[in-house]
């Protein structure tokens, strides 16, 4: 092995400190704490009780399963909603407008989740803007209940995550040569065939990395389920939040956190396997 210059260590040491102190140790700690349990004598012992509590209480694992399924659902929904937009902005709209339209997509991202979710709360409430508007028009007499349920939660989760999917899909679409589509069309392929046989296979890397980002944002989100979902739409992060900041049962919370981490890692691993992607591609 060749001799290292001092500069190498100058680069290596801070990075190692970052990764070990803030990524490795905290998550190992999370793992160990999740097996700590205070027994009847007030002693801290090694135990599986934190995990048993999760499986014994229906509300915990039901919320867990619901969070997993909803996160997958919202990710698919985000794809369905945003793919046409990504396609339009790369392949259809005149080039001179497209960069401005893309800029508009970035604005809600930078404004931040809390503000935009608050906006949806104002829109969807019983006395909110949409109900007010509909009653004013005479379309309805009594307000439609749109807030504090799974519907409003889904809107919020979709809104705050979907834009992160457009950008990777657009960069995949940009490198798709138009002549491939033209050739298929000349050979008599229908729009649906072109979409299925050319566009989708070609943009799979973009869809996969965008989908993973969306999935992560959704499954780990607290703001949209809590503010827009209210009490009737539970989310697993809310259980973690309660263990840490309401009942102060940190070890139980650690077990929940670890379960959430395992769940998200497993689903992402599966998604990467199914689409034949690598994690470092997701980053770019």
């Amino acid at each position: 092995m060749k001799k290292r210059s001092g500069t190498f260590y100058l680069l290596m040491v801070p990075v190692l400190l970052w990764l070990i102190m803030l990524i490795v140790i905290p998550h190992l700690d999370l793992f160990f704490k999740s097996f700590r349990f205070e027994n009847d004598d007030g002693m801290m012992v090694f135990s599986l009780n934190n995990y048993l509590a999760f499986f014994e209480d229906k509300i915990y694992w039901l919320t867990f399963v619901k969070t997993a399924l909803y996160s997958i659902g919202v990710t698919i929904l985000a794809f369905v909603v945003t793919f046409p937009v990504a396609f339009y902005l790369t392949k259809i709209i005149a080039k001179k407008y497209s960069s401005f339209m893309v800029l508009l997509l970035l604005i809600p991202i930078w404004i931040g989740e809390l503000v935009t979710i608050y906006g949806w709360m104002i829109l969807l409430g019983d006395r909110g803007v949409i109900n007010n508007f509909l009653i004013g028009l005479g379309v309805i007499d009594t307000p439609i209940v749109m807030l504090y349920n799974n519907f409003s939660m889904t809107i919020g989760l979709l809104y705050m995550s979907m834009l992160f999917m457009i950008i990777p899909m657009m960069s995949a679409l940009e490198s798709l040569d138009d002549s491939l589509i033209e050739a298929a069309s000349d050979l008599g392929a229908s729009k649906w065939t072109i979409f299925r046989q050319i566009i989708i296979p070609y943009t799979t890397p973009g869809i996969a990395s965008g989908g993973i980002i969306v999935f992560m944002l959704v499954i780990g989100d607290y703001v949209a389920p809590n503010i827009l979902g209210g009490k009737s739409a539970l989310w697993f992060t809310e259980q973690i939040y309660n263990e840490f900041l309401a009942t102060f049962n940190w070890n139980e919370g650690a077990a929940f956190g670890f379960l959430l981490l395992m769940l998200s890692s497993a689903i992402i691993w599966l998604a990467l396997k199914l689409t034949g992607q690598k994690l470092d591609k997701v980053g770019s």
Partner: peptide, 9 residues
């Protein structure tokens, strides 16, 4: 790929 909540706790 670590949920923000998990990183926090």
């Amino acid at each position: 790929v670590i949920p923000g909540v998990v990183l926090g706790i």
